[in-house]
């Protein structure tokens, strides 16, 4: 898969939102937002606090149905599908406040992620059907590969909540990848990470893109956003303000005045990986 989604509209979008609106009481959290996510690229969704970023993420994952508008994954209309159904279609997510399965080991956390890729049911498990044990072996193998991928293989048998904070984020990413997503949504993946961990994250996200997974991250760390994104969407007051490459966004007057005020945008344009 071509990993360089440089903002050309020639690609068939992997994720498409059409005129999404959603209000909570009197507050219009999202107002007629449309955008398209090209496959195999890293997309960032930015905007000031309260701009509707998390709501938009929840609309995509299905935990918050929109009032109007439609979402599509490829050709598949997502409206009306429950969150867990969307996961098997290929949408995975991580949480801003890490939500690991605290009673389980690191490996088991990733194994839960394989749930949608395995079939063994109540009776199969009880009877210990050979298909089930084979499936289980494969799932374990895949989980180990993923832990290797994010660099946590040595901690496989730790209890997940005993991990340091930064590693928990990496575990969450491994767990989300285990569901075999087409699109991975990351809710502020860099928050709470130190600079070293952030740069490790940066490399990891690129590696994920190379594996053909499309990434959409909500992020406040502008350096990270400008460095790794192929395309940036800016939301403000529930409306789309701008949409373009990091360089375009940094030069966009509307974005600078509405979102950044007088401050300079972090990161240098030369850092844009085009």
């Amino acid at each position: 898969m071509n990993a360089q989604g440089s903002g050309q509209e020639a690609f068939l979008p992997v994720l498409r939102l059409e005129e999404i609106s959603r209000s909570f009481g009197g507050i219009q959290a999202l107002n007629d937002v449309s955008f398209e996510v090209a496959p195999g690229a890293i997309h960032a969704l930015i905007g000031p606090n309260g701009a509707g970023k998390t709501t938009l993420l929840n609309v995509i994952t299905g935990s918050c149905p929109p009032d109007t508008g439609a979402a599509f994954l490829g050709d598949c209309r997502l409206n009306g599908r429950k969150p867990h159904e969307r996961v098997s279609l290929g949408i995975a997510r991580t949480f801003q406040n890490i939500e690991l399965f605290g009673s389980m080991t690191v490996l088991e956390n990733v194994l839960v992620g394989r749930h949608v890729k395995t079939r063994c049911g109540f009776f199969g498990a009880m009877a210990g059907l050979p298909g089930c044990s084979l499936e289980e072996r494969k799932a374990r193998q895949r989980a180990h590969e993923l832990l290797d991928f994010v660099g946590l293989s040595e901690a496989a048998d730790w209890r997940s909540t005993d991990l340091p904070f930064g590693w928990q984020r990496f575990l969450e990413i491994a767990r989300a990848l285990a569901t075999g997503p087409k699109v991975l949504l990351l809710d502020e993946p860099a928050s709470g990470l130190n600079p070293v961990e952030t740069s490790t994250l940066c490399d990891l996200l690129r590696k994920i893109r190379e594996n053909g997974v499309t990434l959409l991250l909500v992020e406040h760390d502008m350096n990270l956003v400008m460095e790794i994104s192929d395309r940036v969407f800016v939301l403000n007051h529930g409306m789309k303000l701008a949409d373009g490459t990091p360089c375009e966004i940094q030069a966009n007057e509307a974005v600078i005045s509405a979102y950044l005020g007088r401050e300079r945008m972090g990161g240098k344009c030369s850092a844009c990986a085009i």
């Binding site: 867990h84 949480f95 194994l111």
Partner: peptide, 17 residues
């Protein structure tokens, strides 16, 4: 595992499909 996941965090469990 899925059951224990529900017990730990229902939100995260449903995000695992």
């Amino acid at each position: 595992r899925a059951l224990r996941a529900i017990h730990d965090s229902e939100r995260a469990a449903s995000s695992m499909g």
